[in-house]
């Protein structure tokens, strides 16, 4: 018990002696965590939105003749040769006609004189909803156009693909800001520790001569890193939460924005970000101690 009191007391002294640098470091940790978790939040929401657009996410191959049921497995196999898919649906003329009629609802009487012949048969291909597949829709559609009897391939008017690319960009940004988080926090924390070590060189030297153990000298500096990590990451995530609630109130009105049914980071993810930041800060101070202190 007495030991912890000593270490905490010493940590408190250190913090007091270099509070300017300490605040700068804290600010860096907060900003890094904020930037990283912001992009992570955007990414998580894009993925969520992508799942909700599932209906848009299909390629329709219009055919000039119907595919008899016996032929279907063969076509299916051919499609799968390009890439795995979530589902393949064969739509006959009459199914297409029935669907169209349903869509028109009360206006369906305009179809009265017409037969199912006016509708082209088609194959609906639902690609896997992950980034690799979403960004390859163009290639996929070119491939589908080569199927026997294919006349035309239609898919999400390109925006689905753009959405895929955008999501990929965000994923890249998440990784980039993750690297930034790692570098900035561990650098700043070890920089602060180094300043402390340099400023206290005489004191550390005397402590050494008085028989101080390395635990006695090093623990306060480790606690310093730990505190930076706890405070910085909690404040960073907290700040993001405040910004998120504020933004959500502003944009989630009626209409198309319902699409953006924004959600915050899952609790486990938030906790993971905090824990990793704490580990980074403590690790940063540990490395700095190893490097700059001879005791």
């Amino acid at each position: 018990m007495a030991r912890y009191r000593y270490h905490l007391k010493q940590t408190w002294r250190n913090l007091g002696q270099s509070w300017g640098t300490q605040i700068m470091t804290l600010f860096t940790v907060i900003m890094s965590v904020l930037i990283f978790s912001f992009f992570l939040l955007v990414y998580v929401n894009l993925i969520n939105a992508g799942n909700r657009f599932s209906d848009e996410l299909r390629l329709v191959v219009y055919l000039n003749h119907e595919i008899v049921p016996e032929m279907q497995p063969q076509i299916r196999k051919k499609i799968m040769e390009f890439s795995a898919v979530e589902n393949i649906v064969f739509v006959s003329r009459s199914q297409a006609f029935a669907r169209f009629k349903k869509q028109l609802g009360r206006d369906s009487d305009v179809l009265e004189d017409l037969g199912a012949d006016i509708m082209p048969p088609s194959i609906e291909v639902y690609p896997l909803r992950d980034l690799d597949h979403l960004t390859q829709l163009k290639e996929f559609s070119d491939y589908l156009a080569t199927l026997p009897g294919a006349q035309k391939v239609q898919y999400g008017q390109g925006w689905v693909e753009r959405f895929g690319h955008f999501t990929e960009l965000i994923r890249f940004t998440v990784i980039l800001s993750g690297i930034l988080l790692i570098m900035a926090t561990s650098f700043m924390v070890s920089y602060t520790i180094r300043l402390t070590v340099v400023a206290k060189e005489a004191e550390l030297e005397i402590l050494r001569l008085l028989g101080a153990s390395s635990t006695y000298v090093q623990t306060p500096l480790l606690i310093e890193g730990l505190l930076q990590g706890i405070t910085g990451s909690t404040l960073g995530i907290g700040l993001l939460y405040i910004l998120f609630t504020w933004a959500k109130e502003r944009i989630s009105g009626p209409g198309f924005l319902r699409l953006l049914d924004l959600t915050f980071l899952p609790p486990l993810t938030a906790v993971a970000v905090i824990l990793v930041s704490i580990a980074l800060c403590t690790g940063g101070s540990f490395i700095a101690i190893r490097k700059y202190m001879r005791i």
Binding site: A2, A202, E203, I206, L210, G211, A212
Partner: peptide, 24 residues
């Protein structure tokens, strides 16, 4: 001497005891 000029007299003298985690 090797004493710390910015620490108080008390703090300087107390250091060897603190190093051994003696009660305050």
């Amino acid at each position: 001497f090797k004493i710390l000029p910015r620490h108080t007299v008390f703090q300087n003298v107390a250091m060897p005891m603190e190093v051994m985690y003696k009660p305050a």
